Amino acid sequence: MSYFDFDALQIEDRKMHEVKQLSLQLAATQASLLIVGEAGVGKTSLARYVYGKSRSPRLYCLDCKNPAGFDFGRIDGGTLLIEDLDCASTALQNELMRLVERTDGTRPRFISTSRRDVRAMVKQELFRQDLFYKLAVVHLEIPRLEDRVSDFPVIVNFILEVAQIMHGKTGLRLSPEAYARLNSWSWAGNIRELENVLERAVVLAKSSMIQPSDIQFEVAVEDLELDFAPGMSLSEVEKRLILQTLELTAQNRTRAAQMLGISIRTLRNKLNEYKEEGVL
């Protein structure tokens, strides 16, 4: 999915509102723009929004994670969207610098996205300083979804409508309990994660009312080594699962409780038990 109509969204969050207004102001210019933010916050959507509001005749897209086959020679003005600028190799940075220095009228307008602080990369000599100054005339930082509390209901409704269109459904609504389940999650994957969860809920919904059971979160367990073995008691399995989930979440009890499907109070009681046993 990963598309947002910023004109259709009634943005309430102050910081995001400022980002949108500055985007509109910049759209009519040729200023190079760097959009930064965590994975999944909507950097590419905002970049395409700026391009859509500009008078640029064409858009070229360069993925710095996978630049193989990209032909710099075909660029003739327009706008170049550079995704994941922080992943650009030295060779790719050199190619971009040659493009920046063009004087034959084929130099494009540059809009870049990055998850990392490119300024810090410059200081660490991981990124060319001269290229940074050319590509980052203006910075826009998109806040995390978790920090956009006032925008959350609007974003949920927008994604829900788009997901229904995609899957040929209409009239679906979230039950209060389902919405509360969504609202309690910390959204480490930001809007992209929310899209994933809501699209799955639309597909799974058995009636017009989406229930909490339709809201299923993806739990990242690839780094979790579960040392369970046949013959272990259920209480021991439970203890190891709780402690290893806490380790996975860097001791974030709220997130661990969410992942385990228990209340924070239950988790707290379990941890108190383990302390009495001398485990913690």
Rank of each mutant, 00 (worst) to 15 (best):
S89W: 01
T90G: 09
T90R: 10
T90N: 05
T90V: 07
A91L: 11
A91F: 11
A91E: 13
A91P: 01
L92I: 06
L92M: 11
L92V: 03
Q93R: 00
Q93A: 02
E95S: 12
L96G: 01
L96R: 00
L96A: 00
M97T: 07
M97L: 14
R98T: 14
R98G: 07
L99S: 02
V100S: 02
E101D: 04
E101I: 03
E101V: 10
R102N: 04
R102G: 05
R102I: 09
R102M: 08
T103W: 04
T103K: 14
D104N: 04
D104I: 06
D104A: 03
G105L: 08
T106M: 03
T106E: 13
R107K: 09
R109H: 11
R109C: 10
R109E: 14
R109Q: 08
F110P: 00
S112N: 12
S112Q: 08
S112R: 06
S114F: 02
S114D: 00
S114M: 04
R115E: 04
R115V: 08
D117C: 14
D117V: 05
V118I: 15
V118M: 06
R119D: 15
R119E: 15
A120V: 13
A120H: 08
A120E: 15
A120Y: 04
M121G: 09
V122M: 00
V122N: 01
V122T: 02
V122E: 01
K123T: 05
Q124C: 03
Q124F: 06
E125L: 10
L126S: 12
F127W: 05
F127R: 01
F127A: 03
R128L: 15
Q129K: 15
Q129G: 07
D130F: 11
D130S: 09
